[in-house]
């Protein structure tokens, strides 16, 4: 893929960050896919936006805010209801240690 915007190593790197396991075929397909997306971004980049402020969000009012009040009651049973493993009211996960 001569005009590929993204290397297969980059595909693997991003997949690892996202904890995705990809087959060789997946990698090739994603490389093409992601490259197309980046090519589209290139197309957008041709627009002159020098006079436009960077915009991550629209909406004039800004983020709404709430008062600092406690509105939730403790219900650990409900919160743990779907946990695959638990120890009392704690979630149990495979041991992690640095």
């Amino acid at each position: 893929m001569a005009d590929s915007k993204i290397s297969v190593e980059q595909v693997r790197h991003v997949a690892r960050l996202a904890r995705l396991e990809l087959s060789a075929a997946d990698e090739t397909a994603l490389q093409a896919n992601l490259s197309e997306i980046l090519q589209y971004i290139d197309q957008l980049n041709r627009l002159d936006t020098s006079a436009v402020a960077p915009t991550a969000q629209v909406g004039e009012a800004g983020t709404p805010m709430r008062d600092d009040v406690i509105a939730n009651r403790p219900d650990p049973e409900a919160m743990l209801a779907n946990a695959p493993a638990r120890a009392g009211h704690l979630f149990k996960v495979p041991r992690i240690i640095e």
Binding site: A87, F91, R95
Partner: peptide
Amino acid sequence: IHESGASLVDF
């Protein structure tokens, strides 16, 4: 909270 064999999580 790290225990032998598992880690426990409190949110």
